[in-house]
Design a protein around this nucleic acid. Structure first.
Length: 589
RNA sequence: GGCCCCGUAGCUCAAUGGAUAGAGCAACAGCCUUCUAAGCUGCUGGUUGCAGGUUCGAUUCCUGCCGGGGCCGCCA
């Protein structure tokens, strides 16, 4: 089915075309003035100037054509030339019926037969995930859900940071500590032990020490660089040790992402493209694209007419090691060959924007993108503490993601018990509710901000359960379930037939029908906050409906079952919207 | 220094070039013998950082300035 706004826009577009104007002028949106109309079209205002007509004159012509279309109950011209539109109740009900019958709830098929690769997550091997990883995970996951729902074939890749300097730092630190000496013995011919010499908690201890050592001692940094280069050059013991790091880390990361309800199709990393790098470098050299400069191999990507100077992409450092730009470039080549995607979308910190500009240019320059693949960086802002600086623990250290989730869950648990919720539920269920509520608080707070702006991370505010929060939305769902359960007790559901007679019902139906447009808008702008606004508004409108119409005490059976049908539909729409944000809804609270 | 992003109500944030710039929180006044009051209703709150420009119309686009953050060849 066509989203209602698209349907209305198409009708208006036809009217504009019939009057000799551009089709795009027919764009119809929800009215800014709900007191005046349900929908509005502003096309007449922009059509007027080039046509040397007054906006009212254009609006008159369009309006008279629209009046001939039976879908509208009202077509009015207001102000300088706005065309205000109301849709007939019968039409709303007919669209609602089709919407209800559609198992995809009218999802726009914008991604039909198209493939998108979503690159997000980007955790580092051997380092615990911290709050900095939260945004990429939450936003990326929501986008993958939205793209999939809109018909895209989505391939998500966690893209581990597993091939850079931090690997060399770890290896040399382990060497210094004298752990696992067999991996450092050049005469050892294998096989290496199957069991990892270090656990995840060992790594969590070793990495900060290694990092600190390299910072304070230049000779240690040099050692780490050498180890990195040797690892990349294929030194067997280092490779074996590295494989242990990766295996151990993946286990921890899977659990961590799992606790957030986030899945990836691919667990590739920078190292995955290692076999492609040699041939790629050779190819770039052969075609004269890569040149040597100050001992390093670079790929200049600046173009005439640039507003700013863009530094070249460094392919090989002077010590022969590769950088993440090199692996990113090879990864594009790999993805294009393997999947022929229409889009590769990177959900990565906005601070890396220049890096992606460099890599994208390099890919185009080297013709690695094929002719259909669009490369896009969907950057996001930083998460700051209440002081406006990057979020830290009280002690000033990096806040681990695991601890953060625990804090949110505990806070949720506290609030639930204060409010007397879930008091008589089994302990397991209570814990599960607290987990869902805590995660919902975190996710909704993050997603409801515009992607690119920084936001203040304030756990007290996030876990507050009033107002525009995840828990408010969950609570609305739970109330709907509760009504439906009561109704089911009272008897089997009668024939579902929606009657539209009150403003609260009309407002609810209109909002329900806007789901597809919200999904399309969120995809188009790569902006889950559009969907957040949608679900929040829906919940608000529902709560108004809920307050105004007491369903179970309604005497008229037809009206009661009609309203129950609306509750049922609202529940599925709200649940779906929350699902697209990666938020789970408990059965009861 | 060059470039990128941001600047909106007391606070946290929205708003494809359109009407009276919206929510939430906070403050204030109401609403629970009825489906979960984590709710609903009403009310208060604005020179959209500043100055120009384009436009019938600018929070939105352009220029300059101020303030905050970030990036600027061998970290990711």
């Amino acid at each position: 089915m066509t989203p209602l706004l698209a349907e209305l826009s198409a009708i208006a577009a036809k009217a504009f075309v019939a009057e000799g104007f551009l089709e795009t002028l027919g764009f119809v949106q929800r009215s800014d003035r709900p007191d005046l109309a349900q929908f509005q079209c502003n096309g007449a205002l922009s059509a007027a100037k080039p046509a040397r007509l007054s906006p009212r004159a254009v609006a008159d012509r369009i309006a008279s054509r629209l009046r001939a279309v039976s879908i509208f109950s009202k077509v009015e011209i207001a102000g300088p030339g706005f065309i205000n539109l109301d849709v007939r109740d019968e039409v709303l009900l007919a669209r609602l019926l089709a919407f209800t019958a559609d198992k995809n709830l009218g999802a726009p098929r914008t991604g039909e037969s198209k493939t998108a690769i979503l690159d997000f997550g980007g955790p580092n091997v051997a380092k615990p995930m911290h709050v900095g990883h939260l945004r990429s995970a939450i936003i990326g996951d929501s986008l993958q859900r939205i793209f999939r729902a809109n018909g895209w074939t989505v391939i998500s890749d966690v893209h581990l940071g597993d091939w850079g300097l931090q690997m060399g730092q770890l290896i040399s630190e382990i060497g210094h500590r004298g752990l696992a000496s067999v991996y450092f013995d050049r005469d050892f011919s294998g096989p290496y032990p199957a069991e990892s010499p270090v656990s995840m908690s060992d790594l969590e201890d070793i990495y900060p020490a290694a990092s600190a050592a390299c910072k304070s001692d230049p000779s240690r940094l040099e050692e780490a660089r050498l180890a990195t280069a040797e690892l990349q050059a294929g030194r067997a013991g280092y490779r074996a040790l590295w494989q242990h790091f990766v295996n151990v880390s993946e286990q921890g990361l899977t659990r961590e992402y799992g606790s957030l309800g986030i899945c990836f199709d691919l667990w590739k990393g920078e190292a995955s493209v290692e076999p492609l790098i040699g041939p790629m470098i050779a190819d770039l050299k052969a075609r004269g694209l890569a040149t040597e400069s100050e001992g390093a191999l670079i790929l200049p990507i600046d173009e005439p007419g640039d507003r700013k100077e863009l530094p070249p992409l460094i392919l090989l450092k002077s010590d022969g090691a590769v950088l993440y730009g090199t692996t990113d470039l090879a990864t594009i080549m790999d993805r294009v060959r393997s999947y022929h995607p229409e889009l590769i979308l990177y959900v990565v910190d906005q601070r890396q924007h220049t890096h992606f500009e460099q890599v994208f240019r390099a890919a185009r320059k080297a013709s690695y993108t094929g002719n259909i693949t669009e490369l896009e960086h969907a950057g996001f802002g930083t998460m700051n503490g209440p002081d406006g600086k990057p979020f830290k623990t009280r002690a000033g250290g990096v806040m681990k993601l695991y601890d953060l989730i625990t804090m949110a869950t505990e806070e949720a648990e506290k609030r639930l018990s204060e409010a007397g919720f879930a008091r008589d539920y089994p302990e397991d269920e209570g814990k599960e509710i607290a987990r869902k509520v805590g995660i919902a608080a975190l996710k909704f707070a993050d997603l409801s901000n515009h992607r690119v702006s920084d936001y203040v991370f304030d756990l007290t505010r996030f876990t507050r359960f009033e107002g525009k929060t995840g828990p408010y939305l969950q609570y609305a769902c739970v109330r709907m379930r509760s009504i439906l359960a009561k109704a089911a007790e009272a008897g089997p559901a009668p024939e579902m037939r929606v009657i539209l007679s009150t403003p609260a019902e009309r407002a609810l139906i209109l909002q329900l029908l806007m789901l597809p447009s919200a999904m399309a808008g969120a995809e188009h702008n790569r902006a889950p906050n559009i969907l957040c606004d949608y679900v929040f508004t829906l919940a608000q409108i529902f709560n108004r409906f809920y307050t105004e119409h007491h369903i179970m005490s309604e005497k008229d059976e037809g009206v009661r079952s009609s309203r129950l049908a609306l509750v049922r539909l609202t529940l599925s729409v709200l649940t779906k919207g929350l699902n697209l944000l990666g938020i789970e809804v408990p059965d009861r609270m």
